[in-house]
């Protein structure tokens, strides 16, 4: 069944792409191999086939032979809409594209990159990205959720999923955008229950994403910018932080600010920081070689984390 359907879809693509004029349904049913059965069966078959090809990104143009007469509607695929056209690409352009397609080490995007390069003929230019002093980006397996989310964004369909944050909950979201931020993929969208834009780490979505069938269910605000929603998670209030650091220890923290010797054992390091949560981790990493002095919030946070582990 799958073999016959694949053959019919390829033949339909070739027929519509090879025709300079719109092909009427009757011509398609008569001439394209694979259309069999009653006219109702063929109609249903053709409707499904059109949808399938459109899902592959193939534009099927609908028109009539003669604009002045009510002619039977016909179908065709133009070479312009079907084919890849990136314009003239220099060797340098191809080098950048080749590299861009090979940066990923993530199942979905690696495969997509390889397929893209196979089309552009850039796949053999740089087999080793290291030849260009390249960077390699690796992410987790979250991009498995790309397809349903991007499909939902395209059709403006709502999605729902199980989200495992500190609490496990079912979330219903109007998806706006996917963003890679600090090494992880995030979905930014309107949380329907909360009635506000929320940021979801894709890694915390468990199971599959359900896409609600209804299309055009919402609008993405014009000029939507995800950045402010991401950075809203970063504390903005800056504190003057003071740490007591044992001599010759905690070199990375010492490099952050001014150093004042306190006695034979300790130096005082001062610098400004907003993210006390992360700084507390950095302080605790050094056990008793670094002591948080100021602000009080930092000191209390460090002590609280230690005491939690004793309870």
């Amino acid at each position: 069944m799958s073999e016959r359907k694949a053959e019919r879809l390829i033949n339909l693509t070739i027929a519509l792409l090879g025709s300079k004029r719109y092909l009427a349904k009757s011509e398609i049913f008569r001439d394209v191999a694979g259309y069999e059965g009653s006219s109702e069966t063929m109609e249903r078959m053709f409707e499904r086939d059109k949808d399938e090809l459109r899902n592959l990104g193939i534009d099927i143009e609908v028109g009539t032979h003669d604009a002045f007469f009510e002619d039977e509607v016909g179908y065709r695929i133009t070479r312009d809409s079907y084919g890849l056209n990136l314009g003239e690409l220099s060797a340098e352009d191809l080098a950048y594209i080749s590299l861009a397609g090979k940066l990923w080490r993530d199942e979905t995007l690696t495969y997509a990159g390889t397929r893209a390069l196979a089309k552009i003929d850039g796949s053999e230019l740089f087999n080793d990205p290291g030849e260009l002093g390249a960077t390699i980006l690796i992410d987790d397996t979250s991009s498995q959720h790309f397809e349903p989310i991007l499909g939902a964004i395209d059709t403006r369909s709502r999605i729902s999923f199980t989200y495992e944050s500190t609490k496990i909950s079912q979330r219903h979201v109007e998806p706006y955008e996917l963003t890679l931020w600090h090494g992880f993929w995030y979905l930014i969208g309107n949380d329907i229950e909360k009635g506000e834009i929320r940021v979801f780490k894709l890694k915390r979505i468990s199971g599959s994403i359900e896409v609600v069938k209804k299309k055009s269910a919402y609008e993405i605000p014009a000029g939507f910018d995800s950045r402010p929603h991401l950075t809203a998670m970063i504390p903005t209030q800056t504190y003057l932080c003071a740490l007591k650091i044992r001599k010759s220890r905690a070199h990375a923290l010492r490099a952050r600010g001014s150093v004042t010797p306190l006695d034979e054992t300790w130096d005082l390091i001062e610098f400004h920081d907003a993210d006390l949560y992360t700084l507390a981790s950095q302080v605790l990493w050094h056990v008793d070689d670094v002591i948080a002095v100021e602000p009080q919030e930092l000191r209390e946070l460090a002590i609280r984390r230690l005491k939690e582990k004793l309870s």
């Binding site: 079907y82 940066l103 990159g113 893209a116 089309k119 790309f146 397809e147 991007l150």
Partner: peptide, 16 residues
Amino acid sequence: LPRKLSRQEGISLALG
């Protein structure tokens, strides 16, 4: 004729 890039193919290159 090579087909135009799919959404995911384009995203892989554009993000790269």
